[in-house]
Design a protein around this nucleic acid. Structure first.
Lengths: 346, 346
DNA sequence: CACCGCTTGGGCAACGTTACCCAAATTCGC
DNA sequence: GCGAATTTGGGTAACGTTGCCCAAGCGGTG
């Protein structure tokens, strides 16, 4: 018993035959290339529709373009990334490009390499790296193989463009907000960073620096108090425990990320203290759950959609001209005050 | 001024020349195919490493395989999907396959079609569709073009495998839990479904059915109370407002999804009622935020990791044998009681 | 009328890989 | 020690698309 005809895919040759033209002509129509009359175009398009033809990306890839753009996400769980992604897909919606996401395995440098290599192997036309943890050299290596845009790294490179949030300014907003409410003992929980280059480029480090500068700027240098853990719920919990054990307890905690703030809230509740009564808490990223009623976390909103849109725009520009000089876009964040911050108790 | 040599990619021919063997031999080594001696393998591998050669997926695709698997996610925001994804990538980690995610644009049938078509055009070796909203016919169409596994649809098809959570049982767990605490007036908020086929296949409908059956089974048929909105925060908020306006207010609300429960909590707080004192609330999916301290939502945990693992396994089996009879896997969910449910007030 | 430039269409050779074949060398069975 | 079977390696023709080139036709110009 035979399988019922393995049904070959319709190719450009079938279309050409059906429309009684050459394959070259069909190819020209597909790519909106020069050298095809309106009548020709119409005829070919009709044949394409009648046969339900779709160009095979692999074959196109062998000749150059795949019409595919890769986006590397280090961690799909981070609720901030979808915003960026929407910005990207929105900008690319009416182009011929299709976006695929590469799951970068939670901040793991090796997993990142695997995914980016896979994207290059698949001949993707360009890639967007979101908050990569890879080394500088590695990023430049990638960018030399394929047009690339890096999101969320402050370093400046000649071969790739960058789009970032102004984390320094964001931290400043938080400190300003808390100080404005009357707080003086404002502590910060940061993500520990050991590597020197990354210290300069990663957003977490910028937030910590921004915190320090802002504290100094408003005359609270004496009160600077930074705990180094990690940007996880656990990290927030541990950081808060340390802060709560201080002889002079801080009256406000600026957590470097919303997820960290979740851990802080837990530790605070466990210590029998109330928020914002006994202690104010602010996060960063304005993730979806920050707005949930029972949480209602004061946070900093990065213009995720704009970040994504700009990244896509720059990538298209770079695909069009690989030699163009690199661009750095820095967008301004916004403070979203909610119910976890209030004036300190008298 | 010349650009500094456009650096051609290393190809299989370069490797063959460098190792002084034929391209066929190199290809055999790459694919672990039959017909290459151990010495040959060693020699070729050395050459590969020395040149840093990586096979071009596009060229492979033209000959059949791309070693790429596509996963369609209808909504990256849904915090339940990462679990599934981990299960998939975990299962595929030590194979040669690479996973790429297609962003399916929030429950939009057309966007889904665009992504799945794109995957087929790119010659992907297999695709996993997570909670697709597309019609039955469309799913079968896809599955006839490429090996496919559908996750989160209860329908049975001959051409694709399915992996689902036993939503009926999950709903039963919630009702049982609440009834066990002493509740009788247990209401449910469901996602409105108009299409008939989907009513039978979609998890949301199964949860609603499971709720009804469970209520009947324990003699609470009289108390069945279902509000139809949507699986969104807004839907939960509106649903809860309706329920709270009832002359006999329910003492417990079973929300069809965690995000719905968030809306419920908000409406309840707004009405000046307390949880679980005045009203108990349960969700479904056990998403990350359900466990956050200030929320602590009773929910149902689907074995996301197992779902993903099974989906990947079935897909590999189907890739190996496209004619094999289809399989349906149904996994059992687990109740996770937290602080939003308690005995009703006397 | 010779010449030029432009438009329209097609022929052909890649692109990098693998499936299918065949040839030579080696081992096995008796 | 001879034919048969098995192992090992290579030659070659696709796979579907596009970039480069060329040819024919056409209108305008000097």
């Amino acid at each position: 018993m035979e399988p019922p005809a393995p049904q070959r895919r319709v190719t450009i040759v079938d279309v050409a035959r059906h429309a009684q033209v050459s394959t070259t002509a069909v190819s020209k129509v597909l790519r909106n290339a020069y050298g095809a009359s309106p009548e020709m175009r119409a005829k070919v398009r009709r044949a394409i529709d009648e046969l339900g033809y779709r160009p095979l990306a692999a074959a196109r890839g062998l000749r150059g373009q795949t019409y595919t753009i890769g986006v590397m996400l280090p961690d799909i769980r981070n609720p901030f990334f979808p915003e960026i992604l929407d910005g990207i897909t929105g900008h690319l919606a009416d182009t011929d490009y299709q976006v695929f996401l590469g799951p970068g395995g939670c901040n793991d440098e090796q997993a990142e390499a695997r995914v980016t290599d896979a994207m290059i192997d698949r001949g993707m036309d360009g890639i967007i790296l979101i908050a990569p943890v890879s080394s500088r050299a590695r990023l430049e290596h990638i960018a030399s193989a394929v047009p690339a845009v890096v999101v969320g790294r402050h370093g400046h490179s000649a071969v790739y463009d960058t789009v970032t949030d102004d984390d320094m300014a964001g931290a400043s907003l938080v400190v300003g907000h808390l100080a404005g409410l009357g707080h003086r003992r404002i502590a910060h929980i940061e993500h520990r960073e050991t590597d020197a280059t990354r210290r300069a480029e990663m957003p977490n480090a910028q937030r910590a620096d921004g915190y320090r500068r802002a504290m100094q700027a408003i005359g609270l240098a004496e009160e600077i108090d930074v705990v180094s853990t990690s940007y996880t719920q656990q990290g927030g919990y541990e950081g808060a425990r340390q802060l709560l054990a201080r002889p002079r307890r801080p009256t406000a905690v600026f957590a470097g990320a919303d997820i960290v703030a979740m851990g802080v809230l837990e530790a605070v509740a466990e210590a029998g203290l109330s928020v914002p009564g006994d202690i104010s808490v602010a996060g960063y990223d304005n993730t979806t759950f920050a707005s949930f009623g029972p949480i209602s976390l004061t946070s900093v909103d990065q213009a995720g959609h704009d970040i994504g849109g700009n990244a896509a725009r720059l990538l298209l520009e770079r695909i069009a001209d690989r030699q163009k000089t690199s661009v750095q876009v820095k967008l301004s964040p916004m403070l979203v005050p909610r119910r976890t911050t209030a004036a300190p108790q008298a």
